[in-house]
């Protein structure tokens, strides 16, 4: 088992013929993801890599292939539009990899996605992988192994670092979800923690947060009240100065809120084992399992 994606995932790739889209489409197909369609306006009727039909619109792709999940690789200027289109076409789960979407675009896209009953992961995220079953996004498949640890993170390469630690110490993953580094995102820690808690094949959860906002504090409250499984947490940005955006648009300390110290204290108070450094993940999980 796993969360959000598995062998039943029927994926449509928005932007399949673009530079990033085509590269990662091949990687996902090699991994075994069930890629059923691609969308690039004007290229409808073509076939990608001799295997995947390309359509002009997501609605056509859904009609012809019963795609239920979409992944977006289109440029930032049109990425919000791609999210609207996916939600309007009956896609249930939308994963937006694109980085650099204006936040004001997301203030309009998020309520639309919600109204249509769809779920969005991202934007500005590495996507997710259920090792051995399905990969949607850009997380390198070779660093993951199947297993019982659920991983949820706001970051990309930091997730790879921690997953790599897990895999090399024989701790496989049920699903790894990158929720994205933007201030406005579709899926937050609480959504993922709730899914991992309900997943019988997930035995423990690793959450990787960072400075900025209060998502981690809300997640800590949720863990305290609703999560029985062991949770291990990390917060990046302990040395970040206030008022400066640390790469991710969401990673900024404003006023006295959103600091790493505040978040680590909230996690610890909720019974989450807090890592001081990425290499602590394995020993802390071993203590709790």
């Amino acid at each position: 088992m796993s969360v959000f994606i598995d062998k039943s995932t029927r994926l449509v790739i928005q932007g399949i013929t673009g530079r990033d889209g085509s590269f990662h489409a091949k990687q996902m197909m090699e991994y075994g993801t069930n890629v059923v369609a691609g969308v690039t306006p004007g290229k409808g009727g073509q076939t990608f890599e001799g295997a995947v039909p390309v359509f002009n619109t997501v609605a056509e792709a859904v009609h012809a292939t019963e795609a239920n999940t979409s992944v977006i690789y289109v440029p930032a200027a049109v990425a919000a539009s791609a999210i609207f289109e996916a939600a309007d076409s009956g896609i249930e789960l939308i994963i937006c990899i694109t980085e650099g979407i204006p936040v004001l675009d997301m203030t309009r896209a998020l309520p639309f996605v919600h109204e249509r009953g769809a779920h969005l992961i991202g934007p500005n995220c590495p996507g997710l992988i259920s090792p051995g079953q399905s990969k949607v996004g850009i997380i390198p498949g070779n660093i993951c192994t199947p297993g019982k640890i659920g991983v949820v993170s706001r970051s990309g390469t930091l997730t790879y670092e921690i997953v790599h630690q897990l895999s090399t110490h024989g701790m496989g993953q049920s699903t790894c979800v990158g929720i994205g580094g933007d201030p406005l995102i579709g899926t937050n820690f609480v959504h993922c923690l709730s899914a991992f808690e309900a997943d019988p094949e997930t035995a423990a959860i690793v959450m990787i947060g960072e400075i900025g906002g209060t998502d981690e504090q809300q997640a800590a409250e949720f863990v305290k009240e609703k999560v029985k499984k062991p949770v291990v947490g990390f917060i990046a940005g302990q040395t970040a100065p206030p008022g400066r955006r640390m790469g991710h648009a969401g990673a900024i300390i404003s006023g006295s809120s959103g600091t790493a110290a505040e978040k680590m204290a909230a996690l610890a108070k909720a019974g989450i084992s807090v890592m001081k450094r990425p290499a602590d993940v394995v020993p802390l999980l071993k203590e709790r399992l």
Partner: peptide, 23 residues
Amino acid sequence: NGAGLAMATMDLVKYYGGQPANF
């Protein structure tokens, strides 16, 4: 490479007694 790993690297520099010059 990557903002999250960059922050974690700065943090680790401090953990081992150093001070990062930059992000």
